[in-house]
Measured scan of single mutants.
Amino acid sequence: EDAPSSDDLEQFAKQFKQRRIKLGFTQADVGLALGTLYGNVFSQTTICRFEALQLSFKNMCKLKPLLNKWLEETDSSS
């Protein structure tokens, strides 16, 4: 699987934040939901840093598919 470019990540982080707010979730909600869904709880700080593009590139790449999946799950259930 190709690693996303930093442009991709930036684009995704923006879209993710907009969708999250529109769906009415806090950063902490998302962190907990990831724990429920995938067994990895993320702190509010981590989600905040992801949205602000302040995580390392490697961590951004790791989180992106999880957050993407969460969006898909959340979209389909709302």
Rank of each mutant, 00 (worst) to 15 (best):
L67Y: 05
G39S: 07
E10H: 15
T46Q: 06
W70T: 03
L23Q: 06
A28G: 10
F25Q: 04
T45M: 08
D75V: 10
L67G: 02
K69V: 03
S6G: 15
G31D: 05
K69R: 11
G35M: 05
L32A: 12
D8Q: 07
A33Y: 08
L23W: 08
S77V: 13
E73M: 12
F25G: 01
L37K: 14
N40A: 08
R19Y: 00
R19Q: 08
E73N: 09
E10V: 07
C48T: 10
S43L: 01
G24L: 02
L67W: 01
E73C: 10
K58T: 12
D2H: 15
E10F: 10
S43F: 00
A33I: 06
L67S: 01
K14G: 05
Y38P: 04
A33Q: 14
L71I: 11
N59C: 08
I21K: 06
K22L: 09
D2E: 15
C48F: 13
E1S: 14
K22S: 09
L67T: 02
K64G: 00
P4R: 07
L53E: 04
S43C: 04
Q27E: 12
E73V: 09
D29N: 02
N68Y: 09
Q54P: 03
T45Y: 06
K64W: 06
T45W: 04
D2A: 15
K17I: 13
A3K: 15
L66Y: 13
S56N: 10
R20V: 03
A13N: 09
Q18M: 04
L23Y: 01
S56A: 04
Q54I: 06
F50N: 00
S78E: 11
D75R: 10
F12E: 02
L23T: 02
N40T: 12
L32G: 05
N40V: 09
D29G: 07
A28M: 09
F57Y: 15
E73R: 10
L32W: 08
L63S: 01
I21F: 01
S5K: 13
G35V: 02
W70A: 02
Q11F: 10
A3L: 15
T36E: 14
L32M: 11
P65H: 08
Q27W: 08
S76G: 13
N59A: 13
E10T: 09
Q54S: 09
A3T: 15
T74R: 12
K14T: 11
T46I: 09
E1K: 13
E51W: 00
M60H: 00
P65W: 05
S77T: 13
N68H: 14
C48I: 14
L67D: 09
A13F: 00
S76N: 08
I47L: 06
T26Q: 08
Y38G: 10
S77W: 08
Q15G: 08
S6Y: 13
I47Q: 00
I47R: 03
Q18S: 11
K58H: 10
D29R: 06
A28I: 03
D29K: 11
K64D: 02
S6T: 15
E73L: 11
W70E: 01
Q44W: 03
L53K: 09
T45F: 12
C61A: 12
S6N: 15
S78F: 08
F50I: 03
S5A: 13
F42H: 07
G35H: 05
Q44E: 15
D7F: 03
E10S: 04
S78C: 13
L37D: 06
S6Q: 15
N59M: 13
V30C: 06
S77D: 13
L9E: 03
L34G: 01
N40H: 08
K58M: 11
T36P: 07
Q27S: 05
N68C: 11
S76E: 12
